[in-house]
Design a protein around this nucleic acid. Structure first.
Lengths: 217, 217
DNA sequence: CTTTTAAAAGTGGTCATACCACTTTTGGAG
DNA sequence: CTCCAAAAGTGGTATGACCACTTTTAAAAG
């Protein structure tokens, strides 16, 4: 085997430390200076490892505040990829297509798995939609990605989602609500084709119209 | 907008520099010291940007040799992800499932696109397989991923593939050749279901038997 | 006592320097 | 010309010093 990169080792050590220290999501990590002493490496080496984790959205850093385990992953990964290898408009298309790809597969997986279909989250979503509560688009899709139980795919999707921009953060409008309701219902019943179709129709509806609203900062 | 992270800016500057300097894949980039002077930032800042690009497989660094634009992307991304957020055996399962997901979608896209189906690469592959030439498994799948023309998905797949390990680098055996031939032929003819099925059967065949051979270092 | 506010300590961000390990280039010996 | 050792170049790491910003602390004001 080729010799491991240094910062990969440090990442592994950080992982062990986090587990031993029982550091949970949102908690503060030891400072860079403390870490460099604990791990017996220079601060610059620690920073390179932390930078990698930040790029993947696994940690968040606040200037002057500290380093924290991420709660809701904010990555920079796709942003770097996009600015670096993609020049033209095709970047947006690719991100969109790749995101859709993951969502469609998740729907397939869920439809074919009885336990996933019976998760209470679907009933909960259905009620929230029917009761005219404002539901953010992203939330529905995130639940789907979470349900299909592939943490790696979830990570990738979260990164794609964050780069998809504002439309994902908008509320579900009255016009598009039928698509979502159909999607959720079809998911519960395991109607794969219907669910896939509803999802596509929904996404298509959103991309046709240029929504500008978005929920939170 | 929130103020951009420093290393993101530097990544963009690097991109501009690479374009202006006409640096192509495989070419050497200016040294870290030169870059830090050209961009008027510290060497550590340059290194953080370069580390990000390396993590994404966009550049390769050789200790004592220099920094080069990647020809065939070498990740580290999935490795970091896997070692950090995945503890148990499920990591391997997730990587595998996610890779399959991308391959299946690529097959669907190709089958539904006439131009992609008519690419000469399929005929070429078919001949190479029939003539008993040794063909590496990874190569077939990579051609498929390339053909479907989603650079982002291709990047992600390449990273997943690299983490999938040795089986991908093995040669296609006589036993599994029928699956591959069926897959390629079905691709050309646009027989979506048959292609998907052949692909699954092939992968299943490979994961059942534990191949140890692998082609190059 | 509580509230307010300014100083101090802590932390990430950046730069500069020095040194090490390794590779590439160079130039002289044969 | 070939071969090989020295020199130069380059990435890798550690250290120290600042800066900008946040959090904590403690003194001052009410």
């Amino acid at each position: 085997m080729e010799p491991k990169k240094r910062f990969i080792e440090i990442v592994q050590q950080l992982r062990t430390l986090i587990r031993e220290e029982q550091i949970k999501e949102g908690d503060k990590l030891p400072s860079e200076r403390v870490l460099s002493e604990r791990l017996q490496v220079g601060r610059s080496a620690v920073r390179e490892a932390l930078r990698s984790l930040e790029l993947l959205g696994l940690i968040e850093t606040k200037h002057g505040g500290g380093t924290f385990l991420s709660t809701s992953p904010q990555h920079k990964l796709i942003e770097v990829l996009a600015t670096f290898i993609m020049n033209d408009k095709k970047s947006i298309t690719d991100v969109h297509a790749t995101r859709l790809l993951h969502e469609q597969e998740a729907i397939r997986v869920i439809c074919r798995n009885e336990k996933m279909r019976q998760l209470p989250v679907w009933e909960s979503l259905f009620i929230r939609l029917e009761v005219k509560e404002n539901v953010v688009r992203k939330d529905v899709l995130r639940e789907i990605m979470i349900a299909c139980d592939n943490r790696l795919a979830l990570r990738i999707w979260l990164q794609l989602e964050a780069y998809s921009g504002k439309p994902m953060y908008g509320f579900i409008t009255v016009q598009e609500k039928p698509y979502v309701l159909t999607l959720v219902k079809a998911l519960q019943l395991g109607l794969e084709q219907e669910a896939l179709q509803a999802h596509l129709a929904w996404v298509h509806h959103n991309t046709e119209k240029g929504d500008k609203e978005h929920g939170d900062s």
